[in-house]
């Protein structure tokens, strides 16, 4: 137990100590202490507006992740099986992946105006190619010998896909979903900050306008805490459920 939780606890303690030391060096105006940040965080969580901002950001990320997971995922699956689709979409995926997220924020603001839709589109277009490439890679690196085994017992193409290929593909997606979620969050906050549409990013924009460093850091802490909670409640159980066999199941 001590060995399992000891090193992470030590890491957190070192981080907090460094933060506190930096606070003493630069002062509360530049960098509030961890305790001040915690108080600001508590104040945010005690207000309805704080929860509304958190809910707005989380809701957008969830919706965008669902949309891009569906579109990018289905396209990735098809491309994983069909060379022609893969070859056709490869340059498109590369271009979309290389586009800076900030460029999308500006473009979508021009296209849709500073709105919920523009943020949603930005998140989806940034994480969609990642989910697409993750799915293509998962489909390509599956163990086809297992499908041959199934074929020898008379399994149809659909049965082979359903019982063997899909299982392998899904088990490879956990880390990709984790990355997409974290990136989606960052993009959402950035887009909200630029467009000033309700959410954690808009709260940060307000904190910046008021030079309220406590509130800014509280929102950062809130975003990080939210991500950690989602990762442990959603992504990790998903990975454990589908990918335990990959770790040897000892």
């Amino acid at each position: 137990m001590a060995l399992r939780f000891g090193p992470p606890a030590l890491g957190i303690a070192l981080f907090l100590a460094a933060w506190q030391a930096a606070h003493w060096h630069y002062g509360a105006f530049i960098l509030p202490s961890p305790l001040q940040t915690l108080r600001a965080l508590w104040a945010t969580l005690s207000s309805a507006s704080g929860w509304a901002a958190l809910g707005a950001t989380f809701g957008r990320v969830r919706l965008a992740l669902g949309l891009s997971g569906l579109v990018g995922g289905v396209l990735g699956l098809v491309a994983g099986y069909l060379w022609l689709i893969r070859a056709t979409l490869a340059p498109v995926a590369t271009i979309l992946l290389d586009m800076p997220a900030t460029a999308w924020v500006i473009l979508t603001m021009i296209w849709f105006g500073p709105s919920h839709r523009s943020i949603l589109f930005t998140i989806a277009i940034v994480i969609g190619p990642i989910l697409y490439i993750g799915r293509v890679d998962a489909a390509l690196t599956r163990d086809r010998r297992l499908e041959n085994m199934a074929a020898s017992f008379g399994a149809s193409r659909w049965a082979r896909f359903r019982t063997i290929a899909l299982r392998q593909i899904l088990s490879s997606l956990g880390p990709v979903f984790g990355i997409a979620l974290a990136l989606g969050f960052k993009v959402a906050i950035m887009a909200e900050l630029v467009t000033n549409v309700a959410g954690l990013g808009a709260q940060m924009a307000r904190a910046r306008a008021h030079m309220d460093i406590d509130l800014a850091l509280a929102n950062v802490a809130l975003a990080v805490a939210g991500l950690v909670i989602i990762e442990h409640l959603v992504i990790r159980p998903f990975q454990t459920r589908l990918g335990q066999w990959k770790r040897g199941a000892a």
């Binding site: 297992l146 041959n148 199934a150 017992f153 019982t163």
Partner: peptide, 27 residues
């Protein structure tokens, strides 16, 4: 009907021995 036994077993790594044996029947 024929059965086939492969080099390196080709067992489904996520399934128990029981489920591996039963696999052809589930089809």
């Amino acid at each position: 009907r024929h059965g086939m036994v492969f080099q390196q077993s080709r067992l489904l790594p996520w399934a128990s021995a029981r489920d591996n044996i039963a696999y052809p029947l589930t089809l």
